[in-house]
């Protein structure tokens, strides 16, 4: 289903959900939950957004039914730890590549995905100062290295 323009800020979180459907359904579930919560704040009044959000809710309910036995889904505190570990793993991978001077598309994507997953952590409550800093750094690094590679420059 096409994403209405008003809900564009959640498109990358929804794409991350899709990419993790098979690899890590817990990540996919919480990315969609974040998209749902954020989408409702952005616009749940216009018919096209309502229709989109109702479909997204249907999808979340069916995922919960399917994955209900998984502690990371049935207990949000376990889910919180799962998403945080996953985000930090991605961050550390990209950071190691960066420090080793290995700049490539995969590490840019890991920095960016880590920042998106740190956004997702906000469904569990306010982000810690450390996670806010990691998110800011990861997003900045992803943009900076992407621009360097695009312009044929070596990141510093």
């Amino acid at each position: 289903m096409a994403l209405p323009a008003q809900l564009k800020p959640i498109q990358h979180h929804l794409r991350t959900a899709q990419e993790h459907e098979k690899r890590d359904p817990v990540v996919a579930y919480y990315c969609r939950l974040y998209a749902m919560q954020t989408g409702m704040k952005l616009d749940s009044k216009t018919p096209e957004c309502r229709k989109f959000l109702i479909k997204l809710m249907d999808q979340l309910e069916s995922m919960k039914k399917e994955l209900g036995d998984n502690d990371s889904i049935s207990q949000e505190v376990v889910g919180n730890a799962h998403i945080e570990n996953y985000a930090l793993k991605m961050f550390l991978y990209a950071d190691n590549e960066d420090r080793a001077g290995r700049f490539h598309k995969n590490m840019i994507k890991s920095f960016y995905s880590a920042s998106l997953l740190l956004d997702v952590l906000s469904v569990f409550g306010e982000l810690s100062e450390e996670n806010i800093q990691h998110r800011k750094y990861a997003r900045w690094k992803a943009t900076y290295i992407h621009n360097c590679l695009k312009n044929g420059e070596t990141p510093q």
């Binding site: 919560q37 409702m40 749940s44 009044k45 309502r50 809710m57 979340l60 309910e61 919960k64 949000e76």
Partner: peptide
């Protein structure tokens, strides 16, 4: 009719919020 449309929208919004709370075991 705009009042009716906005009342339908608001009740659908409530329904979404309720479904979200149920999903998260908050009701």
């Amino acid at each position: 009719s705009s009042t009716l449309a906005s009342s339908v929208a608001s009740s659908e919004q409530d329904e979404l919020s309720q479904r979200l709370s149920r999903l998260r075991g908050q009701v």
